[in-house]
Structure formats: C-alpha cells, structure tokens
C-alpha cells in the first residue's frame, strides 16, 4: 500500500503533462482560426479553446474521458457507436484465439517434453519464431481465409491464437521440466508410470510457469485481434474503430478506442492474476 502515493503522483504528473501538451499542440489551430477571422486571441482564450476543439491534434484528458463515458455508457449496447459493442467483438475473437492458442501450446509442450526427437526438432523453431514479426502476416491471413469463404470471428481468432501460442509453448516446456532430479527419482521409487508422473508431478509443478506465460499471451492475443481488424473489410471491433478514426481525423474516437483496449487488456491480465493467486494458494505454492 505504501506505493499508492507514488503511483498517484506519477499518474498526476502524466495528466498535468498531458494538459500541457494539449495546449501546446492544439494552439496552432486556434491561432490559425483567429488569424482567418481577423481577431486577436488572449492567452486564456487560447487555453480554453485548445481544450475543447472538435478535432484536436491531441484531445485533452477530459475529452477522452467524455468520449469513453459516452461510448461505454451513453449508447445502447447494440449500437454501432457503442464501445461496449466494439469491445465485445474484439474480446470474443481474443478469447476464442486465446483458448485455441493456449490449448495447442500446452499440447505441443507435452509432446516436446515426452519426445526427444520432437524436442530437438521443434523447440529451436519455436524459439526462433519469437524473433519474427508475426503480426505482419495478419492482413494476409484475413484475406486468404476470406477467399476460402471463412469470415467473421475465426480469422481474427487465428491470428490471436498464433500470437498466444508460442509464449505458452516456451513457458510450459520450462514448467514441465521444472521438477528436479530428486523429485523425479522419488516418483520412480514409487514405481510411478509416465502418466502418473505427468499428472501428479510435472503438471502441478508447471502451474506457476503456465500462469506467467498466460499473462503474456492474453495480452498478445488482444493485440492480435486488434491488428486482425485493421485490414479493409472489418466494420466492427476496436481495430476498425482505430482505423476509421484515423481515416476521418476523429482523434477523440481513436483515443477512446485505445483506452477501451487498454482497459480490456488490464482486465484480462488482472483476471488471470486472480486465477493464478487462487490456484497457487490452493496448491500451496504461494511464495
């Protein structure tokens, strides 16, 4: 709790800097307008004007908050202007992709741990693939799947799944290998089969690693879903909101979509954090 004050100070400083930047960046437009109208503007007028422009270069925090409030609560949930609606579209793709990617990742990790040939041939590629900018293929996946007749949720979910896949593989392989020699020998003295060794030792021991990589991969799959909405054609979702906002210069729309995405990411990571704490506590592994 002693870090609450510093955090609030930092957040306060960010808001102050933000207001300063708003005035600085938007002042040009105000001066231009005033020059066109042939009037002189005083400094207080400039400040009030910069904080309430229709299409500012940088919207002020209260404008973004207003946009968020309007988008989240001011509209009917089914409306095209509602951020809840767009957030839900993105969230459903994220969750589907996250489930697919995590499931496949865990399965591959189990295979890698139990099969030496698989370990030696697949693992280097799994690690190398982390250095590749995978997001670059997002537009292609969408278009190719659309030409095969697959549209809607699934293509976006595939990108999410792909992004969340590798962190889980790498984390789970580490986790399933985390039991040390002593513990493995103990299982052998109990005459445990490979299956028992997996269910009773390796899988429980891997839980902290699993949760750590789940946090990374849920954030990655949200990014995947948003980027998956960027290519032409998507009309709903936070990514589409970002894109249409950038086409029409609606900066407030961009910023409120961005903050919705941030809130969503924070919520997802937080939910996994709560699950992690509960699970590890019940398993007696809280450090």
């Amino acid at each position: 709790m002693r870090s609450v004050l510093p955090i609030l100070t930092v957040l306060g400083a960010i808001v102050v800097l933000w207001y300063g930047a708003t005035v600085w960046l938007n002042a040009q437009w105000t001066y231009d307008q005033a020059a066109r109208a042939g009037v002189e503007v005083s400094l207080p007028e400039v400040v009030t004007d910069t904080l309430s422009q229709e299409r500012p270069v940088l919207p002020a925090p209260h404008q973004v908050a207003g946009g968020l409030w309007d988008g989240l609560l001011g509209q009917k949930v089914t409306s095209k202007r509602s951020l809840v609606y767009h957030g839900w579209v993105t969230l459903s793709a994220t969750l589907l992709g996250f489930a697919i990617g995590t499931g496949a990742g865990i399965l591959l990790a189990v295979g890698i741990v139990h099969n030496r040939a698989m370990d030696m041939s697949v693992m280097p590629w799994a690690i190398a693939s982390q250095t590749i900018p995978i997001l670059a293929i997002a537009p292609m996946v969408i278009v190719v799947l659309a030409s095969l007749g697959i549209t809607g949720l699934l293509p976006k979910a595939m990108i999410s799944a792909y992004l969340s896949f590798f962190p889980v593989v790498v984390g789970m392989v580490k986790g399933l290998r985390s039991p040390d020699h002593m513990q493995l020998d103990q299982m052998r003295t109990y005459n445990a089969t490979r299956g028992q060794m997996f269910w009773k030792l390796r899988l429980p021991a891997s839980m902290p690693y699993l949760f750590a990589s789940l946090k990374v991969s849920v954030a990655a799959s949200l990014v995947g879903a948003i980027v998956g909405e960027l290519p032409a054609g998507a009309s709903s979702g936070l990514g589409a909101r970002l894109l249409s906002g950038s086409y029409y210069g609606q900066t407030i729309q961009i910023w409120s979509a961005l903050f919705t995405a941030a809130i969503l990411a924070a919520l997802l990571v937080m939910i996994i954090g709560v699950l992690e704490r509960r699970t590890l506590k019940r398993m007696g592994m809280v450090r």
Binding site: R2, S3, L5, P6, I7, L8, T9, V10, L11, I14, L135, K215, A219, L222, V223, I226, V227, L238, L242, L243, G245, S246, T251, I254, W255, A257, L258, A261, A262, A265, A266, V269
Partner: peptide, 21 residues
C-alpha cells in the same frame, strides 16, 4: 515505486494502437 507499476502496466497494453495517432 510510482513509475514501475505504471511501466509494467503500460508494457502489457496493446501499444500498437497508438500507431494511427
């Protein structure tokens, strides 16, 4: 103590979203 939690939080956000801005 103030910046680290904020930094950790921002590191988990979909930062690519600021690209259009």
């Amino acid at each position: 103590r103030g910046l680290l939690p904020v930094g950790n939080f921002v590191a988990a956000l979909p930062v690519v979203g600021i690209a259009p801005i």
